[in-house]
């Protein structure tokens, strides 16, 4: 019963309800930020922001394109972070076979700084961050304690416009295709970002790089994008084995 998010950026108004709802639900402290010439703040994901709305603007002929990208862990179907972490500390990263949630446990504290960096570099979306005080590796939890009790993730619950959606994978894939077909009328190049590989699927109406450099699976230390995708599209075999062994 894998869960999936559909993040339809064509409906996002960057109200940041999701960013704050995430912070509030997880009771994460605030960073001491500065205005740096952008509305995107904090400037990047960090140990206290598992969710961050990224702002990217450009002029397109006579019109302006202002793209909003509510960034978060993609909960990869076959998560490279887990493979990487397993090499250091078994059980530091686990995957819930029920929901598909990729979870960073307390055991991530046992990972060295270098190991954390390796896990982060293994992530094709540059998501994991090391907690400056506890040393734990942290990121979006899919609001696991909520979704296993029938509640929506905090970010999805807060979203006013239907940009954030959550549900059964098949349901979300169907919704993604339906929405994609609808927005293509206005944006012929609209696309779904890595839909076969991840549990958090973005619907993009513009070139992914006009949202964020890691909007789609990016270059990692060992793999380029093609290699990464090839690896991700492999059957669920590895993660199933991992779960059995766990």
């Amino acid at each position: 019963m894998a869960k999936t998010f559909l993040i339809d950026t064509s409906r996002c108004t960057a109200c940041r309800g999701c960013q704050i709802a995430c912070k509030e639900w997880n009771e994460l402290p605030a960073n001491d930020t500065r205005q740096w010439g952008s509305h995107q703040n904090p400037p990047d994901l960090n140990a206290y922001n598992y969710k961050l709305v990224r702002f990217n603007e450009r002029r397109d002929g006579d019109t302006v394109r202002w793209n909003f990208f509510p960034d978060q862990c993609r909960h990869c179907i076959d998560p490279p972070c887990k493979h990487e972490a397993d090499a250091y500390v078994e059980g530091a990263v686990i995957q819930d076979p029920e929901t598909g949630a990729v979870l960073f446990t307390e055991k991530t504290r046992q990972l060295s700084e270098e190991a954390c960096e390796a896990v982060r570099e293994a992530c094709p979306y540059n998501i994991p961050r090391r907690h400056p005080v506890t040393g734990a590796l942290v990121k979006c939890t899919m609001c696991h304690e909520r979704i296993t009790r029938g509640m929506l993730p905090a970010c999805v619950k807060a979203c006013p416009t239907g940009a954030m959606n959550f549900g059964e994978r098949e349901e979300m894939l169907a919704l993604a295709e339906k929405r994609l077909a609808a927005v293509k009328a206005e944006f012929p190049n609209a696309m779904l970002a890595d839909p076969d590989s991840v549990s958090v699927i973005y619907l993009l109406t513009d070139d992914p790089f006009n949202y964020h450099q890691n909007a789609v699976a990016g270059v990692t230390r060992d793999l380029d994008r093609q290699q990464f995708l090839a690896r991700l599209t492999a059957p669920l075999r590895r993660s199933a084995r991992a779960a059995m062994q766990g």
């Binding site: 940041r16 960013q19 704050i20 912070k23 509030e24 994460l28 402290p29 605030a30 960073n31 001491d32 930020t33 500065r34 205005q35 010439g37 509305h39 703040n41 904090p42």
Partner: peptide, 12 residues
């Protein structure tokens, strides 16, 4: 409210 100040911290 710390989380709001974090998101929009200073005059621009």
């Amino acid at each position: 409210v710390p989380c709001l100040l974090e998101a929009e911290p200073q005059l621009y």
